[in-house]
Amino acid sequence: MPRSGAEARRRLQQAALELYRERGFDQTTTAEIAARAGVNERTFFRHFPDKREVLFDGEADLRAALARAVAEAPADLQPLEILLFAFRKVERILEDNRPFAEPRLHVIAVTPALRERDLAKTASITEAVAEALRRRGVTDRLAGLAAHTGWAAFHQAIQSWIDDSSQSLDAHLLQAFDDLRALSATAPPAQARPGD
């Protein structure tokens, strides 16, 4: 039996991930996850509201850390540079969780219910980041665009890091933002609107 709540939580997450990979998400019950983790089902529900959330633990911490990092970024940075600063601040959260993150991404990719939950979590994070930018005086329109674009670059960096661990997450993140800058630098001028 796990001795602490943190240990039980970690074992439940690992058990769920193993079972989802072996049997699939839909074929796995919370009772089976609890049994694999060496706890009872009541303990599962003390830690997680449902079997989807077991793979999304830490999302609230990441969201709060990103909002805090946006607030702490140097005053002279532009919105995308603020986001790069913030993403670099939270890299440790992901690096410490890499053994869980890689298989988790594969399970989410093949499970529609988990992809749906992942999209909801992403929306929550990007809205928190956009709100943090607004509090810094970035206009509403630009804050939303920066948050979505920055998150896309961050997600790209994470996927590249999972696929190629020969470089650090930081190196992949810097490359993703360099690519983003290159895309915007080479974009053709905006087309004239009809009637202009």
Rank of each mutant, 00 (worst) to 15 (best):
M1H: 10
M1P: 12
P2C: 00
R3P: 02
R10M: 04
R10G: 04
R10H: 11
R11M: 04
L17M: 02
L19G: 04
R21W: 01
E22K: 06
R23T: 08
G24K: 05
F25S: 05
Q27T: 11
T28I: 02
T29P: 06
T30E: 07
E32T: 05
A34G: 03
A35L: 11
N40V: 09
N40E: 07
R42T: 13
T43W: 03
F44Q: 01
R46H: 13
R46Y: 04
H47G: 01
H47M: 00
E53F: 06
F56C: 13
G58N: 09
G58W: 15
A60F: 15
A60R: 15
A60D: 15
L62Q: 14
A64N: 14
L66T: 02
A69I: 09
A71L: 09
A71I: 06
A73P: 01
A75C: 00
L77V: 00
L77C: 04
Q78F: 09
P79L: 02
P79F: 02
P79H: 03
I82T: 12
I82A: 05
L83W: 07
L84E: 01
F85I: 05
F85P: 03
A86H: 02
F87W: 12
R88V: 04
R88H: 02
R92I: 14
I93T: 14
N97R: 14
F100T: 06
A101Y: 14
A101L: 15
E102V: 15
E102A: 15
P103Y: 00
R104W: 04
R104G: 09
L105N: 11
I108S: 02
I108Y: 02
T111M: 09
T111H: 04
P112R: 11
R115T: 08
E116C: 00
R117H: 06
D118L: 05
D118F: 08
D118G: 05
A120L: 14
T122K: 11
S124M: 13
E127F: 12
E127H: 11
A130T: 07
A130W: 08
L133P: 01
R134W: 11
R134V: 12
R135D: 13
R136I: 09
G137S: 07
D140T: 14
R141Y: 14
G144Y: 15
A146H: 10
H148W: 14
H148K: 13
H148G: 15
T149N: 09
G150M: 03
W151H: 12
A152Y: 09
F154S: 06
A157G: 06
A157K: 03
A157M: 08
S160V: 10
W161M: 08
D163G: 10
D163N: 11
D164A: 08
D164Q: 08
S166M: 00
D170F: 07
D170Q: 12
D170K: 13
A171Y: 03
F177S: 08
D179T: 11
A182R: 14
L183F: 10
S184E: 10
S184V: 10
A187V: 02
P189N: 03
A190K: 03
P194Q: 05
P194V: 12
P194W: 08
D196P: 06
